[in-house]
């Protein structure tokens, strides 16, 4: 099974500032990490390869330093990676991003399955996975919490929704987005980390993936961010409970029940 995992490098902080002009995150000075949801996508791909054989290719779009996140994915078992990096990709919204990634997936060729994390923690849109499926005209399943089975031409997944879950069979090739219930991502080993430093990460430009310049970057993005604002502060109240341990425990249970938490 040839699997492409789409990953994104995101700011490591919850305290990111927004540029008031561009309405985009100010990334300068922020430490970057692999999007936490993508670690589950990488782990699932590696587990599928361990079960069924094949290859895991990590694909990302971003600045050149995003190669570090590709190396991180390789350090936990991905075979290789490709980075889409060029000024022309800058400012792409989810539609333009998924267009570029879909083109890269076509160029990689013979891909059976694309796995994405359910969303990136910086944008929180959850649109890129479904966007890739739309551009490729492949089957898709979002919020996947388990891969039940797979064969040469299909995959059976369990997808989570508010009222329970669905079991879906998808003909391959397909795109799935995964939630964190799907697995426990492995921690990189030192050997894996050292090996990942030695791999070459090819950088593809728009021309390499046959991208129409009018469909990427700001020009190719139908979305405009009109206004951004931080969420309103939570109205928290601290209540101190005093007494013996048993009294405190009773009082705490009572408070939690009053608020329907227990």
């Amino acid at each position: 099974m040839k699997i492409v995992v789409c990953i994104k490098q995101v700011p490591a902080t919850n305290d990111a500032k927004i540029d008031p002009e561009t309405k985009r995150i100010i990334r300068e000075g922020l430490k970057a990490i692999l999007n936490p949801f993508d670690t589950y996508a990488v782990e699932e791909a590696v587990q599928l390869r361990e079960r069924f054989g094949g290859e895991v290719i990590v694909l990302s779009m971003g600045p050149e330093k995003a190669a570090l996140s590709i190396r991180e994915a390789v350090s936990v078992g991905a075979d290789r990676g490709v980075l889409l990096s060029d000024r022309a990709f800058g400012g792409s919204d989810t539609w333009a991003t998924s267009y570029a990634l879909a083109n890269a997936i076509r160029k990689i060729g013979d891909v059976d399955l694309v796995i994405c994390g359910k969303q990136a923690v910086d944008g929180d849109t959850a649109q890129v996975g479904p966007g890739i499926a739309a551009h490729l005209d492949w089957k898709q399943a979002t919020y996947v919490m388990a891969v039940e089975d797979a064969s040469d031409d299909s995959i059976v997944v369990k997808r989570m929704h508010e009222d329970g879950y669905d079991i879906c069979e998808l003909k391959l090739p397909a795109v799935v987005t995964v939630v964190k219930d799907i697995n426990t991502p492995r921690i990189p080993t030192l050997r894996g980390r050292l090996a990942s430093e030695k791999i070459e990460v090819p950088v593809w430009k728009p021309a390499d993936i046959g991208a129409d310049l009018s469909k990427i970057g700001l020009d190719g993005s139908p979305t405009r961010v009109v206004r951004t604002a931080p969420p309103p502060p939570r109205n928290t109240v601290t209540k101190k409970i005093s007494g013996t341990s048993a009294e405190c425990a009773d009082a705490l249970i009572k408070e939690l029940r009053l608020r329907s938490i227990l």
């Binding site: 921690i187 030192l190 050997r191």
Partner: peptide, 12 residues
């Protein structure tokens, strides 16, 4: 805080 494991560092 995630760190590499002692035995693997010693081995590597």
């Amino acid at each position: 805080l995630l760190a590499f494991q002692g035995p693997e560092v010693i081995e590597e």
